[in-house]
């Protein structure tokens, strides 16, 4: 049996909120003390203890948590109160994790991004269009491990594309 140098799994359902600052509020600063995982700068992602924060556009973040939408909503309400505008988008995406030495070459058939370690490292995040699918992704670690999200209505096509390029 040929040993594959990459593995792929479907991510479990996560709670997810889109967060933006109310006029003039410095949310990133607040998040440093108020959230277990602070809000990162644009193009980056941070993760601790089941809570991930992602930024791919200025002044907007996605916060993802391994838990219910109620729990995450309450956590964020407590952290930001009136300083933030928040929208619950839990369930809007399906996700996949691809990891291993072969993942760069495999994802090179899908993503139009430079995945070379000189260009992209652990903690980098991006939104892009890959094989006509809108994709949100980040590099989680140096293995490398990548996590990719695609909007739910495209789930079947996303899966099919991953099969066609040999990731699944």
């Amino acid at each position: 049996m040929v040993e594959r140098d990459l593995e792929a799994v479907v991510l479990p359902e996560l709670a997810m909120f889109a967060v933006a600052p109310r006029r003039g509020e410095a949310l990133r600063q607040r998040s440093q003390r108020a959230l277990p995982t602070p809000l990162p700068e644009c193009g980056r992602t941070l993760f601790t203890d089941g809570l991930r924060t992602v930024c791919v556009r200025p002044d907007q973040w996605l916060v993802l948590g391994e838990g219910t939408a109620e729990w995450l909503g309450a956590l964020l309400a407590e952290a930001f109160g009136d300083a933030a505008n928040m929208v619950d988008v839990s369930g809007a995406y399906v996700g996949m994790r691809v990891r291993g030495a072969g993942s760069r070459a495999a994802l090179g058939k899908f993503l139009p991004l430079d995945l070379h370690p000189r260009a992209m490292q652990a903690g980098h995040a991006a939104a892009t269009l890959a094989a006509h699918l809108p994709v949100l992704l980040w590099q989680a670690d140096d293995m490398p491990t990548y996590e990719l999200l695609c909007t739910r209505s495209y789930a079947a096509s996303f899966r099919r594309t991953m099969e066609l390029i040999g990731v699944f």
């Binding site: 193009g43 556009r57 200025p58 139009p112 892009t128 269009l129």
Partner: peptide
């Protein structure tokens, strides 16, 4: 300026 250089099909 936020995402780096990208192909025009993203715009």
């Amino acid at each position: 300026p936020h995402c780096g250089e990208r192909g025009n099909d993203e715009f």
